[in-house]
Design a protein around this nucleic acid. Structure first.
Length: 294
DNA sequence: CAATGTGTTGAG
DNA sequence: TCAACACATTGG
């Protein structure tokens, strides 16, 4: 629907009852929640969060603005949020929303690209028809921690140093004492890679007193083209309603830093950072903080 | 200049 | 929390 997008403002223009002179907009108030009239006859959408207004953009169609508000409300306040267009909660859409940062959702609304992105995600994840359809893009997840990879993380050491605090808080406990302790493996699925599974060995190096992801890491680095300065962000799967439990799947994303040029094998629409996502299992329980905008 | 989005206030 | 309203800021 958002395809045709803007430029439908002829409705109110066509009539001769035109606003004409007065800068005062039309019907002062909108019958929709979160919708506010704009001076030019269009409609703005906004939602409040923590005493602050979050602008959701302007729309030619009052109903479109209302829809934008609804989407934001669902993302910010969850399923039970009061919305303009009530109805049975769409699980898929809720998952789609939960899987994205609020800022991203807001951005999509402001750019009027939300519907397109939702459809695309739904399509790639739901309909496919072959084997294990993952719909990874729809898996709700909450952030755990991230790290900007250092030169050594992507160098010959073939390992990623996991910040101690985060490792101990979010990764399964390691038996440092046991000599012949069985290696701990963490399985991850690559969201961008169509659900490909990666496995990393997770261990503690007493020599450097650091937690590390070893076997499998270098391969990942190579195939993903990760370089120093990129950021790997870990997150954990959670149910759409925020409920969290033990042994939930875990994700990892790699935000690539802007490349100078040269190889040029990947493109960054909008000049931003592309994201490589993975998620895995075998993760011990951990409390997860509330999601945040940033 | 027109459109957008923030400052800000007052009501609920 | 929320919307009304003014107006500063953007953007073409």
């Amino acid at each position: 629907m958002s395809t045709s997008t803007q430029e439908a403002e002829q409705d109110w223009m066509a009539g001769d009852e035109a606003v004409a002179s007065s800068p005062r907009a039309r019907s002062s108030s909108s019958r929709y929640k979160g919708v506010v009239p704009q001076p030019n006859g269009r409609w703005g959408a906004q939602i409040y969060e923590r005493h602050a207004r979050v602008w959701l953009g302007t729309f030619a169609d009052e109903a479109a603005a209302a829809r934008a508000y609804d989407v934001a409300a669902l993302r910010f306040r969850g399923r039970g949020a009061a919305v303009n267009s009530p109805g049975p909660a769409d699980a898929a859409e809720m998952a789609f929303l939960a899987a994205r940062p609020k800022a991203e959702v807001v951005d999509m609304l402001r750019k009027h690209t939300y519907d397109d992105e939702l459809r695309q995600a739904l399509r790639s994840g739901g309909a496919g028809g072959g084997g294990g359809d993952h719909a990874l893009a729809l898996v709700p997840r909450v952030p755990l921690f991230e790290k900007a990879v250092t030169p050594s993380d992507v160098g010959r050491l073939n390992r990623l140093v996991v910040p101690k605090l985060h490792a101990e808080k979010h990764f399964p406990p390691l038996d440092e004492g046991a000599d012949a302790a069985p290696p701990v493996l963490l399985a991850f699925e690559d969201v961008d890679g169509g659900g490909k599974v990666w496995r990393f060995r997770y261990s503690f190096w007493s020599s450097s007193q650091s937690y590390v992801l070893t076997r499998g890491w270098s391969r990942f680095v190579r195939e993903k083209g990760i370089i120093a300065g990129d950021t790997v962000a870990f997150s954990q799967a959670a149910s759409a309603d925020g409920e969290m439990d033990v042994k939930r799947r875990m994700f990892i994303e790699c935000r690539k830093r802007k490349r100078k040029d040269g190889g040029g094998d990947d493109f960054c629409p909008g000049g931003g950072a592309r994201v490589v996502r993975l998620f895995g299992a075998n993760i011990a329980a951990s409390a997860i903080g509330a999601s945040c905008m940033c």
